[in-house]
Amino acid sequence: MIELENVAYNYGGGELLSSVSLKLAPGSFHFLTGPSGAGKTTLLKLCYGDLLPTAGDIRLFGRSLAEMDRNDVALLRRQMGVVHQDCRFLDHLDVAENVALPLIVSGRDVGAYAQNLDELLNWVGLTHRSHALPPELSGGERQRAALARAIILSPDVVVADEPTGNIDWEMSQRLLTLLVELNRMGKTIVVATHDLGLIRAAKALVQARVLRISNRRVQLAGADL
């Protein structure tokens, strides 16, 4: 589903990632760890086509990024939902409107998705906050709204960048449960995190692979991939 072959990425005149080869299979669950500045966010952006590698090849759903133009990449990214670290929202729109934005951007009839939107807000526990504005939300509510927005188009892959970084442990576990449920529905999940407790909790719920960025390379269980 996502394949990186000998990928490198240079940033600010230096090499941030080097010789990264990685395959993310359909229906798999992955945690991405590493110290701050190691390149976790950069690797995620490479995985969903927001960045192009300095060297190597990236294939998304069987197609090489090098062979696609911006429109091709934009269409392909509709199959991928992204939960950004900073939970970007339009503050003048309420929660339901923010969650529905991908429908508008993709030219869908929002009215035809009204029932799906209601069910999704209920699934993430935000029905009672559907008309609240983003500044009125708690950290956990913002993360759950961001997750709902990421999956409104029913993507095959969900990528989350430090989704529990600014919320308490109870809310982190609730968000993890939602991600595990998505994985059980067949979605490929990739979560960047520094929270080892979250990873330990996940292993009791799902078969997850832990990837670690060290010395510009991605490692699995202490071995280079």
Rank of each mutant, 00 (worst) to 15 (best):
L65G: 08
V83L: 03
L196S: 11
K40V: 09
R184G: 14
G111A: 13
E119Q: 13
A114K: 12
A201K: 02
R209L: 10
S154F: 04
G140A: 04
V190C: 11
V159L: 14
Q219L: 15
H194R: 12
N71C: 10
A66C: 08
L120F: 00
A114F: 07
H131W: 03
D69Q: 07
E5T: 05
R217G: 08
H194L: 11
I151F: 07
G139H: 03
P35R: 10
L211Q: 02
L17F: 03
H30P: 01
V158G: 11
E170N: 07
A221W: 04
N71R: 12
L137C: 09
A204S: 07
R200H: 06
L76S: 10
P135C: 07
I213L: 10
K45P: 07
N6W: 00
L179I: 09
L76A: 13
A132E: 01
R149D: 01
L153P: 00
E119V: 02
P135L: 05
R144K: 12
M80F: 04
V206E: 02
L120I: 11
W169R: 12
F29W: 05
E15A: 09
K23F: 06
R129Q: 06
S172K: 03
A208P: 02
G111D: 06
G37M: 05
K203Q: 14
S106D: 15
Q85F: 04
A66Q: 11
G197C: 09
Y113K: 14
P155R: 01
Q143H: 06
A74V: 13
G125C: 09
D156N: 08
R78G: 13
Q207T: 14
N98P: 11
N6E: 03
D118F: 09
W169A: 05
D168W: 00
E119I: 02
S18Y: 06
V83S: 03
A160Q: 09
Q219N: 08
I167W: 06
V218N: 05
D72R: 06
R184E: 10
A112S: 15
K203I: 07
M185Y: 04
V157E: 02
C87A: 12
A202N: 04
L117G: 06
G107C: 14
E141D: 02
L90A: 10
L93H: 11
L147R: 02
D168V: 10
A160H: 09
P53D: 12
N215F: 05
R142H: 03
N98M: 08
T127K: 13
G140D: 00
Q79I: 01
M68A: 11
A96E: 07
V110H: 02
E170S: 05
A223W: 05
S172L: 02
A100L: 11
M171V: 09
S21E: 05
D195Q: 08
E136Q: 13
A145L: 05
T33N: 07
G197N: 14
K40S: 07
L198K: 06
T164C: 08
V7D: 01
A150T: 08
A38Y: 04
A112E: 15
I2G: 01
P163L: 01
F31G: 12
L153C: 09
G14Q: 07
H131N: 10
H128W: 10
V158N: 09
